[in-house]
């Protein structure tokens, strides 16, 4: 197996606040890797550093053997990492079809002149993209809604569209930021199937942030738990679930322990 993503000693400071503190974890090819932790633990900050929204204060981010630090967001996307956002960021006034269509811009190579004179390059390029978009929408169960404006979609479909748009770039690594946020149990089950399905179909590696514990425990091969920017546990779902610090971070200390501290 190949290491797809290596995060080594990654740190991000916002002034006096250390949002991510010396974090290290490695994601292997084809894994579904979970990044979990209570609110404000620094999970999204990690995503933002991987996709160059923020520059890390120190540490390394290595993708397929190549350092990503110092690259811009679009270069990272082109290298093969795409993402979704916690607070969905679709092209709101575009249709479902157009959202995915736009994201396919790198899957063809006609230039601006080709598009002005509509030559063979343009026509075959656009035809190929159209076909890809339709296939992808079909695959994601959004084909029936393809002409709807993105912001009018039900919440679950918006999340799914955002995943479709990210997958349209044919990434190697997909970052999902709370994909199940605001979903009911049925939708969440559906989402689990979708994530597993696209991993197989597109040969993806997935790194995901999530609060729904059943989803995380159900789907992730490996999990890293962070709190206040620091790693508190790492391992499989079972290992992490029974880790005392994880239980403490999520549920607080046991009463006896608290009494003990007071005394």
């Amino acid at each position: 197996m190949i290491k797809v993503l290596e995060i080594n000693n990654l740190t991000k400071k916002f002034g006096g606040l250390t949002a991510v503190d010396d974090l290290t974890f490695h994601v292997w090819e084809n894994q579904i890797y979970g990044l979990i932790g209570p609110n404000g633990a620094g999970k999204t900050t990690v995503f933002n550093m991987i996709t160059a929204v923020y520059a890390p204060t120190s540490g390394e981010i290595i993708f397929n053997g190549e350092s990503l630090v110092g690259k811009s967001s679009y270069e990272i996307a082109r290298a093969g990492i795409t993402r979704t956002f916690q607070n969905i960021r679709l092209f709101k006034e575009m249709t479902v079809y157009e959202n995915v269509h736009t994201a396919c811009h790198l899957n063809t190579d006609y230039n601006i002149w080709d598009s002005l004179i509509h030559n063979k390059n343009y026509k075959s390029g656009e035809k190929q993209i159209r076909q890809e978009v339709n296939e992808l929408l079909e695959r994601m169960g959004l084909y029936e809604r393809r002409d709807e404006v993105a912001m009018n979609l039900p919440y679950g479909d918006q999340r799914r569209l955002e995943i479709a748009r990210a997958v349209a770039l044919r990434p190697k690594l997909l970052l999902l930021d709370e994909p199940a946020a605001g979903m009911n149990p049925d939708e969440t089950n559906e989402l689990v199937k979708t994530i597993r399905g696209i991993r197989e179909d597109f040969n993806l590696t997935v790194l995901l942030i999530e609060h729904h514990m059943d989803l995380v425990m159900n789907i992730c091969d490996q999990i890293v738990v962070i709190n206040f920017g620091k790693e508190i546990a790492k391992g499989t779902a079972q290992e992490v679930q029974n880790h005392p610090e994880v239980i403490e971070a999520y549920l607080g200390k046991r009463e006896e322990e608290l009494l003990h501290v007071d005394a």
Binding site: T51, V53, S72, S73, Y74, A77, R78, T82, R83, F85, R89, L90, F91, K92, E93, M94, E98, T102, A103, H105, L106, R165, A166, A168, L169
Partner: peptide, 15 residues
């Protein structure tokens, strides 16, 4: 149009 709609998302799809 993508940039008009959502600049951050545009850059994360490689624009």
């Amino acid at each position: 149009t993508a940039i008009r709609e959502e600049e951050l998302a545009s850059s994360t799809i490689g624009i």
